[in-house]
Design a protein around this nucleic acid. Sequence first.
DNA 1: ATGGTCGCTTGGCGA
Length: 269
Amino acid sequence: MIVVSWNINSVRIRLQHLKRLVDEMNPDVVCLQETKVVAESFPHNIISDLGFPYQAVAGIKSYNGVAILSKYELLNTKVQNWCKKEDARHISSTINFPDMGKVEIHNLYVPAGGDLPDTRKNEKFAHKLSFLNELSKWQKTQSENSTKKILLGDLNIAPLESDVWSHKQLMNVVSHTEIEILALRDLQNAGPWIDAVRELIPKDEKLFSWWSYRSRDWEKNNRGRRLDHIWVTENLKNSIEKIQLLKEARNWEKPSDHVPVIATFKARK
DNA sequence: ATGGTCGCTTGGCGA
């Protein structure tokens, strides 16, 4: 079972990139964020032809948007709204994989939070924290059971020092502030969720999934952050076989500013 | 300290 999380920054403009990802990685499920298209205009047929006839989509005009693309049937698809906004940031489905059995997948696009890390002066930052808090609260109402679950997406927070190019220079920059990291940790504990990426890649190793467009030579400057995550429940931990952050995708022609995060799972007996 | 670049949509917002 291969699962991808990717903030594609417009699905329509990057269909060729999606095709390339599929050709090279052969994923079973691709979870997209920032599709930037309403459901009616989602390129269903083209994506179906790429091998994903099952698609769960939530979209609004211009902004946000999440989608789950699958080789296998999507069961019990749900779009959840937080902070009283219908802004297409959370979609979930259950998939019955041939090798892993049923897995519940939550695909999230957490608000970026604007520039100023101050809830009183910046509504977007307040929204980001409220979004995470509401999600955590809801998580805590979910009784723990034997269901295998994955939470993934653009969480717009880089929690570890090694998740940013400079901890010192970013500790007051939105995405790496203490209050955000605590809110993310609270959500993680609420699952409880295991960070699948850091389960396999040492916690002190620098690791990024996003590099700003506003850097001329992104690769040389390497001022990246790890904003995109794949989390799993304990019952999937021992099945994580491989983690890839597809850095080369940042050099594809007219790329997204985020690269795909890819998790390969293998069923254990 | 500021601006730098994208995508959607056509003036300006959001990232």
